[in-house]
Simulated assay, not measured.
Amino acid sequence: MNEAVRLESLYKTYDGGVTALDGVTATFAAGSFTAVMGPSGSGKSTLLHCAAGLDRPTGGRVFIGGTELTATTDTAMTKFRRDRVGFVFQDYNLLPSLTVEQNVLLPQRLAGRRADRRRSQDVLTRLGLGDRLHELPDRLSGGQRQRVAIARALVAEPAVVFADEPTGALDLRSAGEVLTLLRAAVHEHGRTVVMVTHDPVAAAYADSVLFLADGRLAGALSAPTAEAVAERLTHLGDLVAARPSGAVA
């Protein structure tokens, strides 16, 4: 299996002794779409942030494309993240004073690279925004803003795209459109997507689901349906209690 992301015995403890991740080991294959699910406080967003290099784990190692992210300095980690990682946030994280095209090109400019306007326009056109290049974000719907965020994540051709509740602020139709775009990025363009979500319907767009509870892995599900995901979520507490730390069903 060609690995896009590998997590080895990840621990994350915050001040006050709160453990958010408790020995998590997982692998995400290249060209796969994985949903990460669990109850509030289960550690899923912490896992995503540590895997993406937005936060450092207290212990353990993170590899992206075979390179150990956790072995680098903070400056090198930031550069690596800009070059190899895309991120999609629930609240879009678009700058309101920049146009659609300028928002998409911003990571390249921050990285000191020449902005590839032709590629950005091509990606935006494929996402149905070719006629909105010069619009400001406040002139767009929520679904359109999230498509801009996806374009920004994809334009640099990252090794992996991490998405943190990307449909949490969207209506059902817009959410379906965004999830279809993420799935197409995987199945038609070979990208790797790791998505945190609380929604079983959203998780059903993924190839597989990884479940977390109390900062520990609590099973996995291939070819998920919304019904199967919802059923599994109801039993996470029992699964965690029955397994040693870091084990996967």
Rank of each mutant, 00 (worst) to 15 (best):
N2M: 14
V5Y: 00
R6G: 02
R6L: 01
R6Q: 10
E8T: 08
S9V: 05
Y11N: 10
Y11D: 01
Y11R: 11
T13Y: 01
D15A: 15
D15P: 03
D15E: 13
G17S: 09
L21Y: 02
D22R: 15
V24A: 07
T25D: 07
A26K: 06
T27M: 03
T27N: 04
F28C: 02
F28M: 06
G31W: 00
S32T: 15
F33N: 01
A35K: 00
V36P: 05
M37E: 12
G41H: 09
G41Y: 09
G41K: 10
S45W: 12
T46H: 03
H49V: 03
A52D: 11
D55K: 05
P57M: 09
T58E: 06
T58W: 03
F63G: 00
I64S: 04
G66L: 12
T67I: 13
E68G: 11
A71T: 13
T72R: 13
T75H: 10
T75L: 14
A76S: 14
M77C: 15
K79I: 11
R81L: 13
R82Q: 15
D83S: 14
R84F: 10
R84Q: 11
F87P: 00
V88I: 14
F89V: 09
Y92R: 08
L94R: 06
P96V: 05
P96I: 14
S97M: 09
T99H: 04
E101A: 12
E101M: 06
N103T: 09
V104Q: 13
P107R: 03
R109Q: 14
L110Y: 04
A111I: 11
G112S: 07
A115N: 05
R117C: 00
R118I: 08
R119W: 05
R119M: 03
S120E: 08
S120A: 15
Q121G: 15
L124A: 08
G130Y: 05
H134M: 12
L136Q: 11
D138P: 01
S141E: 14
G142A: 06
R145D: 08
V148A: 10
I150D: 05
A151K: 03
A153M: 10
A153Y: 05
A156D: 00
V161G: 07
D164R: 07
T167G: 07
L170T: 00
L170Q: 04
D171A: 06
L172Q: 13
S174H: 13
S174K: 03
A175G: 15
T180S: 14
L182E: 14
V186M: 02
G190V: 05
R191F: 01
T192P: 01
V193P: 02
V194K: 02
T197P: 12
T197N: 08
A202P: 07
A203P: 07
Y205K: 04
Y205W: 15
A206Y: 02
D207A: 06
V209K: 03
F211T: 00
F211E: 06
F211Q: 01
A213H: 12
D214W: 05
D214F: 00
D214M: 01
G215R: 02
G215Y: 12
L221F: 03
S222V: 05
P224W: 01
P224Q: 08
A228Q: 09
V229L: 02
V229D: 04
A230E: 04
E231L: 11
R232P: 00
R232N: 01
L233P: 09
H235Q: 11
H235V: 12
L236R: 05
D238E: 15
D238L: 07
A242F: 10
P244R: 14
A249V: 15
